[in-house]
């Protein structure tokens, strides 16, 4: 078992290196960054902040990784966050007991995922188009639920989804790590992981080998919807209000980026839940560093784009030979001169 973990760690070396790099930048920006202290039974410190703030995107990445592994994509996760948050907030405000409101929000995510899965697996729509439908229509649905306002609520249990502490960690961190662990367990202790990778690599061969391809496809979208709903609950609880316009806005792109940084190809095939989570943490660590550096806010997006571009080109199979040949040519010129 320990050897098994070592193998996995070895595979995650690039992501771990990136994360360490991003954390070092944080230390450089804020010297006390790595300090951890226990206060009132809860850990505080820069690392905890990154985990806590990164929890929603971690969850989205956990759901997105299997989707991308089937050569799909789920553009609707940000919107599912908004809808599920709106459902939970409207639920408690309408007097629903908090466990029911939370269940309703999670069920909403399942239904959204089912819808996506149906379009992709049964009606054979291209995933980018199929999930675009919900991405476009979903904000409107969320706005209908919140009537265009930010639905503020005071239900303490719902607020606790983002504010409570479990095992000295903020609850969102525990939830995200638990979801990642559960998903990893689900795909690796059952045959789902193999089926997802087989379907993503060669759907025709997989079908001929007896893999229920449409079931596999449908399942990954349902799971992605559920993860998004959980992320939506956290985001909503965090601001004690459901903001239909802004909750989860553009986070689908962060999630896709996290999965790609985690080494999963958009052409499907091999995927790793753990590395996708690391990818999400890398993004959050970068964002935190930029935020805390006190740079003019105009630079945020540019810096983020530059770092991401650098990370991804470095991963590209075409880049290394290109870099080498450029380097060689440069050296040649130098030699000639």
């Amino acid at each position: 078992m320990s050897a098994f973990i070592l193998i996995r760690l070895k595979a995650a070396r690039p992501q771990l290196a990136l994360l360490v790099l991003a954390l070092l930048v944080n230390v450089f920006v804020a010297p006390g960054f790595l300090d951890l202290r226990l206060q009132d039974g809860r850990l505080f410190g820069g690392l905890i902040d990154i985990l806590n703030r990164g929890a929603p995107v971690m969850l989205l990445a956990v759901g997105m990784a299997p989707v991308i592994a089937t050569r799909g994509i789920d553009l609707s996760v940000g919107v599912i966050m908004a809808i599920s948050g709106a459902v939970a907030a409207a639920g408690v405000n309408a007097g629903l007991a908090w466990p029911l409101a939370i269940l309703a929000a999670l069920a909403t995510g399942l239904v959204c995922g089912l819808w996506n899965g149906l379009l992709v697996a049964v009606f054979r729509l291209q995933p980018i188009v199929a999930t675009l439908i919900l991405m476009v229509a979903g904000r409107g649905i969320a706005q209908l639920i919140t009537e265009g306002r930010i639905l503020t609520f005071t239900e303490p249990h719902l607020i606790a989804v983002a504010g409570a502490t479990l095992a000295a960690l903020p609850l969102p961190v525990v939830l995200a790590l638990a979801a990642a662990g559960l998903t990893g367990l689900l795909v690796r202790t059952t045959a789902l992981g193999l089926f997802v990778e087989a379907v993503g690599t060669n759907p025709r061969s997989s079908r001929l080998a007896g893999v229920h391809t449409s079931l596999v496809l449908g399942a990954v979208y349902v799971w992605s919807g559920l993860m998004a709903a959980l992320a939506g609950l956290i985001a909503t609880a965090d601001i004690k209000g459901a903001d239909a316009n802004n909750a989860g806005l553009w986070l689908e792109l962060d999630a896709i980026l996290a999965v790609v940084i985690g080494g999963t190809s958009l052409y499907g095939g091999r995927f790793s839940i753990g590395r996708s989570v690391l990818g999400a943490l890398v993004l959050q660590a970068m964002r935190t560093a930029i935020l805390r550096a006190g740079l003019p806010p105009e630079l945020n997006l540019v810096l983020m784009a530059l770092v991401v571009a650098a990370v991804l080109t470095q991963q590209s199979p075409a880049f290394r030979p290109l870099a080498q040949s450029l380097l060689a040519r440069f050296k040649n010129k130098e030699a000639q001169a």
């Binding site: 202790t189 059952t190 045959a191 789902l192 193999l194 089926f195 087989a198 997989s206 080998a209 007896g210 893999v211 229920h212 596999v216």
Partner: peptide
Amino acid sequence: VLALQAKRGWWRR
């Protein structure tokens, strides 16, 4: 193992 695994179903890995 793909075909045998598919025959067994996803839960019986």
